[in-house]
Amino acid sequence: QTVVIGDTTYHLNNPEAAQQIAKELAKKYGLKVVISGNTIKLK
């Protein structure tokens, strides 16, 4: 699972954790979560 935040890319072996982290950050910073395949992007 790949999480992309701005110009930073994180690789996590746990998809659920990756999605949870993405949701928390999106909520905290008012970002939009875009999931395509096994890549999660925060914009």
Rank of each mutant, 00 (worst) to 15 (best):
T39V: 12
Q1I: 15
G6R: 06
I5M: 06
A22F: 10
E16A: 10
D7Q: 12
I40P: 00
T8Y: 14
A18R: 04
Q19C: 13
I35P: 01
A17Q: 12
L31W: 11
L31N: 02
V3S: 02
T2S: 08
Y10K: 02
Q1E: 05
V33A: 03
V33I: 14
N14A: 06
L42M: 04
P15H: 09
I21H: 03
K43N: 06
G6F: 13
S36T: 10
V34M: 07
N38A: 06
V33H: 00
V3Y: 06
T2I: 13
L25T: 00
N38T: 08
Y10S: 01
N38K: 08
K28R: 12
P15G: 07
K28V: 05
K23M: 13
H11V: 11
T9V: 13
K27Q: 09
A26N: 03
V3G: 02
N14E: 05
K27L: 11
P15M: 13
L31A: 04
V33N: 00
E24K: 14
Y29D: 01
L25P: 00
E24H: 14
Y10D: 01
G30A: 06
A18F: 13
Q20D: 05
Q1R: 12
K41V: 14
N13K: 11
I40H: 00
L42Q: 01
Q19P: 02
N13F: 09
A22Y: 06
S36L: 10
T8G: 04
T8P: 02
Y10R: 01
N38M: 07
Y29M: 03
D7L: 13
L12V: 10
K41G: 03
N13L: 12
V3C: 13
T8C: 15
I5E: 03
V3M: 07
K27A: 12
I35S: 03
K32T: 13
A22E: 01
N38H: 05
A17V: 11
L25Y: 05
D7A: 13
I21E: 01
K43M: 15
G37S: 04
Q1H: 14
T39P: 00
N38I: 06
T8K: 13
A17Y: 11
P15I: 12
D7H: 14
D7R: 14
Q1W: 15
K43F: 14
S36I: 13
K43I: 15
K23I: 09
I40N: 01
A22V: 07
H11P: 03
L42K: 00
T2M: 10
H11M: 09
I21T: 04
G6T: 03
A26W: 13
S36A: 08
K41Q: 12
V34N: 03
K27S: 08
V4Y: 08
L25D: 00
I5L: 06
V33R: 00
P15Y: 12
E16L: 10
A26T: 03
I21N: 00
G30T: 02
L42P: 00
K43D: 06
G6M: 07
K27H: 07
K43H: 10
K41I: 15
